[in-house]
Design a binder for these strands. Structure first.
Lengths: 238, 238
DNA sequence: TGTACATCAGTGAACGCGCGTTCACTGATGTAC
DNA sequence: TGTACATCAGTGAACGCGCGTTCACTGATGTAC
């Protein structure tokens, strides 16, 4: 019983790796050349055609590699952050008190997630650099794929916020919106983070500032009871 | 007394226009070809060399065109919005009351500015599209130039906020940060706004949501007097 | 178990094409005296 | 005011080069009987 196609052709992975490396430098998948990639991979120029029928096909292969290396790990990361910090979700849901407890957790999870996130960025510089570049790059197909990824990541975040009960006082709709904005902004910050070594701490700080203030504002717009609001804001100030 | 170089060579402007048009389509200045631009401009391929010594030089020329068409008008726009709405800044600065008055104005200016901004975006689709693209594009020189522009725009915004006294209760440092984040995020939204005609209202709404909530959160993080905070948040909720 | 055939990843040579760039030229405008 | 010269934007032909793509080939692995 022979396995069906157990191995991915090694030339194909070589080509993808070479393209990743080159795209990281030149900041564009589309501008890569067939011969250029072959050269970098140490293969014959036309080996390319054994595996891909066009550049866009290679582009998608690269992007899938990139996307796959982002989504699942990011989600796991957030769970880890939550687990390492959170105790049990309180069973009794007396609003004011329950909310305050949640929000304490949220603050810590936010801080921890941001730290883990930027560590993760440094471990996958190609994925993030290419991701950010192609988000507004020259291939409509790749742009679309990456917009979709952002949407997915935002949906993941929103779901986690709900499941982990990090913002029980905020409407689902607002959680969705916040998630999307936060994912986008922090995603954009990633490349800066990779490149501007001296500014890393500042960038992490900015991300935290941004995240917490946006969350605080959203809560403030939705919670109209003065005492509750005062307590919640005090909690976020820490 | 003849004027010194009163006219900009018309071939040069033709080339820049052609390059703008092409870059709008292909979403990359760097990927443009000398011959391609000449063809689009209806000129001989090597007329290019009469005006530019390299593609990067053309790139900078384009970008200056783009930048020039953004900065001043944007600033004027904000002033117009403020003027059309604001009364006099109250001379007496009893905090709670003065702040509330300011914040009422802020809300209206925010809404108005966002509307004017997106109108302006639609009038300058090339500038915004190319701007957003090259912000993370493949030419380091152009990226840098655009990062600088973002910084300038953010500084303009921060200064306007200060001069117009839109956020007197927030520290200068926070105003700077908010400005930068807002400029970036709304800049990124511009391309979506141009392309996704059906989503325009939603995008404007999202921009407003984002702006107001971020501002609200920043105020909430800095104003610790409960009564004052409650009043201010009520004002922002509108 | 052995033989014949098919499939597949990779090679090397060759193609025609469009590219960037250079050169020598033109004709219009500006400048010196 | 007129003449001679310089400058400048634009032309057209020509170059060599690297590109994408195709073709016929090779040798290894898988499959049928």
């Amino acid at each position: 019983m022979a396995l069906v196609k157990p191995v991915i052709a090694q030339g194909k992975t070589l080509l993808i790796r070479a393209a990743l490396k080159l795209a990281m430098k030149t900041r564009s998948i589309r501008a890569l050349g067939v011969r250029e990639i072959g050269r970098e991979a140490g293969l014959n120029p036309n080996t390319f055609y054994r595996h891909f029928s066009s550049m866009d096909e290679l582009g998608l292969a690269i992007l899938n590699e990139v996307i796959r290396s982002l989504r699942v790990p990011l989600r796991e990361m957030r769970r880890t952050a939550a687990d390492s910090i959170a105790g049990e979700v309180p069973a009794v849901r007396v609003p004011a008190e329950y909310w305050t407890t949640s929000l304490k957790k949220t603050r810590l999870v936010a801080r921890e997630t941001i730290n883990l996130y930027f560590e993760f960025v440094l471990k996958n510089p190609e994925a993030f650099t290419i991701g950010v570049t192609e988000l507004t790059g020259s291939s409509p197909m790749l742009r679309e794929a990456l917009q979709g990824t952002i949407t997915d990541l935002a949906a993941d975040l929103a779901e986690d916020i709900r499941i982990l009960q990090l913002l029980p006082m905020v409407s689902d709709d607002s959680v969705q919106r916040i998630s999307r904005i936060v994912i986008r902004e922090i995603f954009m910050l990633s490349v800066d983070y990779i490149e501007r070594v001296e500014a890393r701490e500042e960038i992490r700080e900015l991300a935290y500032f941004f995240l917490i203030n946006l969350v605080a504002g959203t809560i403030a717009m939705e919670v109209s009871d003065n005492d509750t609001l005062a307590t919640l804001m005090a909690t976020l100030r820490g």
